[in-house]
């Protein structure tokens, strides 16, 4: 099981600023280890954000994104106390969802 994400969600007017820090190796599949063997690709492919259970962001990512990536989103029409759920899925079928309340 992957490590938890760190989610910050703050309201500014009627826009929620959401920032997510994810723990993931994001291997490109192009690097070699010290024995010269290719390190298999392992990266997040989809990221979704739900606000009170309703999908508001869905995106695709690839191997060019750095290890332990940070993503930022702005969501309109949110209010303090709303529940934000962020989910990622990677190319090995692993996934993780974490939640936070908008402050």
């Amino acid at each position: 099981m992957a490590d938890p994400m760190k989610i910050r969600a703050q309201i500014k007017g009627d826009v929620a600023e959401i920032r997510v820090l994810m723990s993931h190796p994001m291997e490109t599949g192009q690097r070699k280890d010290s024995d010269g063997k290719i390190i298999p690709a392992h990266y997040i492919q989809t990221v979704t954000v739900a606000l009170n259970g309703k999908n508001v962001v869905s995106g695709q990512t690839g191997g060019s994104v750095s290890r332990n990536p940070v993503f930022g989103f702005k969501v309109k029409g949110a209010k303090a106390g709303d529940k934000v759920a962020v989910t990622w899925k990677d190319n090995k079928g692993d996934s993780r969802t974490d939640e936070a309340s908008i402050a």
Binding site: D3, K6, R19, L21, N68
Partner: peptide, 12 residues
């Protein structure tokens, strides 16, 4: 600057 993956270490 703003978001630092050190926070993942901190949580662990």
């Amino acid at each position: 600057g703003d978001d630092n993956p050190a926070e993942l270490y901190e949580m662990r």
